[in-house]
Design a protein around this nucleic acid. Sequence first.
DNA 1: AGCACA
Length: 442
Amino acid sequence: MSSVSSQPQFRLTQPPSKVLHLRNLPWECTEEELVELGKPFGKVVNTKCNVGPNRNQAFIEFSDLNQAIAMISYYASSSEPAQVRGKTVYLQYSNRQEIVNNKTTADVGGNVLLVTIEGADARLVSIDVLHLVFSAFGFVHKITTFEKTAGFQALVQFSDAETASSAKNALDGRNIPSYLLPEHLGPCTLRITYSAHTDLSVKFQSHRSRDYTNANLPVAPSAIDANGMFSVGLDGKKLEPESNVLLASIENMQYAVTLDVLHMVFSSFGPVQKIAMFDKNGGLQALIQYPDVQTAVVAKEALEGHCIYDGGFCKLHLSYSRHSDLSIKVNNDRSRDYTIPNTVMMNPQPSILGQQPVATHGPPAHTYPGAQHHQMMPQPSAGWATGGPPVPHSMPAQMNNNPYLPPGTMPPQMGHGMMQMPNHGGLPHAPAMPPYRPGHMQ
DNA sequence: AGCACA
């Protein structure tokens, strides 16, 4: 007869095991922290954290029993308790001999996410909006969308499982920010699981599938109009032909909207090549030219119906212009060609017009007052390199203020084509983009 | 602070 209790959980002494059971861990303790803790005593071959109702228990498994014994012995006699993040951790031999990581296929992620968009207007969510949302976490390779009994779904392919996982963690269960949606749409919730796919097959660029890695992929015949543009939306509804030039009408213009303000707002989505402002029907309109249609599409999706200034002032209405290349005769306070080098812009000299466009990566000649202090100007970035394929890197500015991720956890892919977003504050009437914060997504 | 799933 042993003197210890026969109930395994509450025995005072556990038989040794190379698996240790830890408790009183800080909430959501990471595997790395467990490894750090065990490393001095041997080789940690496996861990399992966030165990128990409070997720504050864990297991670590050493390669050898003696290592586990060493750790237990050390802390049994140490004056300093084992600690993680300053919190005392209690450890003992586990009553099991090995860690079984019950990772189901649903937990072990692949690089492709299965996204179900819920909501009455789910199927009105464009592939461009999805691209925008998921690009916050890294380069999106491909997206396909389809209707299933589950509703409107999309497969979103990232480079790797880590990126996909960060997107899933941040977005699952959240709503697409309303300001990314056409304003008449109701809330659209994202439900995300891992797909078993690793590489999607996208035959055509179309309204239901895109391959952002292949700018040369043919556009689906069904989605082309006479101008070679996308002209069909979901449900086969005719769309306005897309264009690299946007026509902006500004409603409720209580504050002056200057060329520089427009440049700043639209630069968030890519290099703005040219802007022309003019009065029409007593209101202000502007044409904004991007180098490619894709960027214009993203900008239109993101900005349509939103106000430049808080309080409903200077509301933007965007449509695609029939123009593809604006003719800017003179740089003044109503029109500007940003592709002409700064020095020329300051002192126009027709003889230099043959030069390469360079201004798209630098600040414009007239920066918005104080702009430099707010990092609101486009940063140079590989994604916008001239001459490259125009499609893949059109990522919006919000991404740098990525709300889904805690600071400092930006995936490395974020470097592509990223731009700083103007922050609130600081400037009188600084353009106020809707903040991309989780709190606003519910 | 006390042993994991599905």
